[in-house]
Design a binder for these strands. Structure first.
Lengths: 139, 139
DNA sequence: CAATTATTTGGAATGTGTCTAATTTGTTTT
DNA sequence: AAAACAAATTAGACACATTCCAAATAATTG
């Protein structure tokens, strides 16, 4: 699905597929994330959604992003100690993080081979593996 | 060097080796981190350092941890959106993160093979690679 | 010792994110 | 369609980690 294919109607379906009741605010927040195809943080989402006229409160933005994440519709990316980024790409993948600009770029997981992870202690399961390659412009 | 080998005198040398002027507070903070050999966050460091009598202010703890990190004496670990952990182990290594307890465990880098990282854009250099394996107890 | 520089400090300020109780919205029921 | 109920949203207060700042202290130099 190309970025230009994301419509508010698509979002309604997507929300339903994840067992989320589609409301105005939820549709707008989902649309903001998916149509931009970028890694946005909460206040960026809020700015986009309220660009024309104020529509959605801060509390709803945070509630909704957390809800989307719990339902597996988006992913949290924790690279910056000061804020969480949300990633509409839920396919397994990793990230370049430009420490100078804060920019995040996806790394396709197909390219990557990761071997030699030690065995987990009994009773533990892996929830996910995050690989973050921190990069910066040559000094 | 075993954990029991970390003394305040060692810390003085270690600070000097990293071009840091050793002061009372800096020695105590370094000692707290290295003698514990654990992943501590700022307020844990502060609690340890001020356990007997209040010696070091919050501002100094934060300043000092940032200084140590800039000088490459310790490493930041960003896994929890709410706080930064500091890691006295600067050898390349990765982490298990227990999302239920917040516990961090080292993974030796020698065991790990990572291949297929895409080429960096020109003018960019890798600053570091962080691999975080998020684990949880079986439900 | 006086002068200068480096370090530490308390407390105010910032910014992200959560909580709460009240309202609004939407859906059933009758 | 009104009444009853549940779900979602809201404003604003709150919590917390971290940073900022200007003043005080400590250390170093001439």
């Amino acid at each position: 699905m190309k970025a230009c294919d994301y419509t508010r109607d698509n979002m309604t379906d997507l929300l339903r597929q994840h067992g989320i009741n589609p409301t105005h605010q939820r549709i707008e927040i989902a649309y903001a994330l998916f149509s931009h195809q970028e890694h946005l943080c909460a206040d960026q989402v809020m700015a986009i959604v309220n660009a024309k006229h104020s529509e959605t409160s801060k509390a709803t933005v945070y509630n909704t992003l957390n809800l989307f994440q719990e339902k597996g519709m988006i992913r949290e990316v924790i690279v910056d100690p000061s804020k969480v980024f949300y990633d509409p790409n839920t396919h397994p993948h990793h990230h370049f993080y430009n420490i100078a600009t804060g920019e995040l770029t996806d790394i396709d997981v197909d390219d990557i081979g990761l071997t030699g992870l030690p065995q987990l202690p009994p009773g533990m399961v892996t929830e996910g593996v995050d690989i973050i390659v921190r990069v910066r412009p040559t000094a």
